[in-house]
Amino acid sequence: MSLSPESRAIIESARGAEDMSRSHRARLRGRVMAQVLTGAAITAGTSAATQVASAATISKIGAALVVAGAVGWGAQQALEPAPLPALGGSAYVVERATESAVANVQPKKETPVPQIAPAPPQPSAAPTASARTLSDEMALLQEAQRELQAGHADRALALLREHEQRYAAGTLIEEREAARVLALCRLGRTDEARAAAERFAVRFPRSPHRARVLTACAAR
């Protein structure tokens, strides 16, 4: 027995529509490479990969998610000043990986507190250059995020520019550009923010940050 023509048509009409967007694929690629390159040395012989990934790796993944969460936080804060939520839904890996660090998410005014605890030393598996590059990229973006949260949108913007120069082809471009829109809104540079938001929507049409970015200034 073979499938009915109608069933066949349903399958055919979905063909090609399931693949990841380019930005989604690139983001996941960054995560996978970071995990594989840093975690490979210590995962031999274990089955549940995420459970045995080094704490360092998980922290890095967590860092990316904190960055993603921060964009959301910025938008939310634009609506009403509220204490930093526990990093929203994005904190899952962080909570699992570095529970103690999450308690520190509220940054102090002048002295930025690292949101992710330093990874425990990994004697056997030194991170390779690719993974280091990714974590450096994240660190810079996190710094910008902290400045934004602390109300220093101008400093945040400068850091975002630095990120743009150093990581022109980076993994977190989408997050950087979203943060830029929020920073511009904060500074009251509404026209520039709107223009940046429109460019963002064109460049990342499937971005999870899209709605927040497009409404960032309106919410103020």
Binding site: H24, L65, A68, G89, S90, A91, Y92, P208, R210
Partner: peptide
């Protein structure tokens, strides 16, 4: 289900 790690585009489809 686990809370969202990273939001992905189709979540906002309804928007």
């Amino acid at each position: 289900p686990e809370p969202a790690l990273v939001e992905i585009a189709p979540v906002s489809e309804r928007d």
